[in-house]
Design a protein around this nucleic acid. Structure first.
Lengths: 199, 199
DNA sequence: CAAAAACCTTATCTTTTGTTAACGTTTTCA
DNA sequence: TGAAAACGTTAACAAAAGATAAGGTTTTTG
């Protein structure tokens, strides 16, 4: 995909948060860069500070932790979604997890430094603060739902919910990653699937 | 506590996010109001849009859902912390849970309307956007940790972590609420406590 | 102050999940 | 293309959690 098309996808993708007029967009775009992750390539690793906030124009990534030598997948992001090791990026602290491309993945990226410059730019500042606020608020709502699911639902109920609302995630993501995401083991997910099919 | 003292506590409490100089504070304070919740009084209930964002100057509250007629406590907030039915407040949608005072609780409050006015106020706007962004980012980091705990830890591990880091929460909050918060039943928490004591 | 409510523990039984391993299929990649 | 790795299912057993109920203590409240 050409950069121009990626930029347009980016602009459209963030329109739910904030819209830039052409003059603002002209100031904005020089601050962004582009990158492509090949399959299995890492965007972020444990111990390193994450320097970029990204928008995925195509592809998919998974977020995972390593605990007792085992990988545990906690989240996924797909095309037209934002991606970052948020906490590390915002707090400038070493990252505690990994982000890895599940497919070849194309990114539009903003570095932390450039973001700071935009936040200090006389014309962009207010809009960028708002952008940051709305993104963060958006994620809070997602997280709130996720925590609520862990608190109020059984693994089986969480699976059913995901199956209903998770688009075609089961077609796209290996099942054992999804099991981790649901907070259970792959074996347990396999059983749940069998159980719920029979009913 | 006198309102002046509450305001000072509020100012100090939000200083981790943003600091107001005296001139700004003078503009700021007329937008806030005060309230006291008596024990067991609800600040927010299911189905109603939450109109206030609060700072707790003294007391404590719990957040809970009702599922199949049962109350399930998902979170707590204490003095010097912010409190709101965030999602409802931000999105102007009916709230899906309850917030109830565990003790008599004193609040400094900002209404949604007043917040919007501050966000449009020429002097306050930028700082308020930043305030909102930093609060949201702060909560994202908290939520991220919470979800990570559900993904990577067993109930027993989550209990041990809470016992280590949860200050004196076990002295202050009924244990069956804490069980919900950990994602398990009260009976199960009682067993875990016995188990971990014996070791 | 006394009755009622709330709370924690314990016991019993059931259900679910975790663990480990084996097996067959599919995918990957050198 | 062919060996290796990855993946999903199933089985068997162990461990943990859920459900329900009973009992005793503490707290609440009229």
């Amino acid at each position: 995909m050409y950069k121009q098309a990626q930029l347009e996808a980016f602009r459209k993708g963030i329109a739910q948060f904030v819209t830039f007029n052409d003059a603002e967009w002209k100031i904005f775009t020089p601050y962004v860069s582009f990158s492509i992750l090949s399959k299995k390539e890492h965007f972020a690793v444990e111990g390193k500070v994450c320097d970029y906030m990204c928008f995925i124009t195509s592809g998919a990534v998974r977020y995972y932790h390593i605990k007792d030598g085992q990988e545990i997948t906690g989240y996924f992001s797909f095309e037209n979604e934002l991606m970052s090791a948020y906490k590390s990026f915002l707090k400038r602290t070493p990252n505690t997890n990994y982000i890895q491309a599940l497919e070849e993945t194309a990114l539009v990226m903003i570095s932390y430094q450039n973001l700071q410059q935009m936040l200090n730019h006389p014309i962009l500042a207010l809009k960028m603060e708002r952008f940051g606020r709305l993104i963060a608020e958006y994620y809070i709502c997602c997280y709130e739902d996720r925590v609520t699911a862990f608190i109020t639902q059984s693994p089986e109920e969480r699976y059913i919910t995901l199956e209903k609302t998770g688009k075609n995630i089961f077609q796209r993501i290996p099942q054992h990653f999804i099991a981790n995401f649901l907070g259970i083991t792959p074996v347990s997910l396999s059983r749940i699937r069998k159980r719920t099919l029979l009913q």
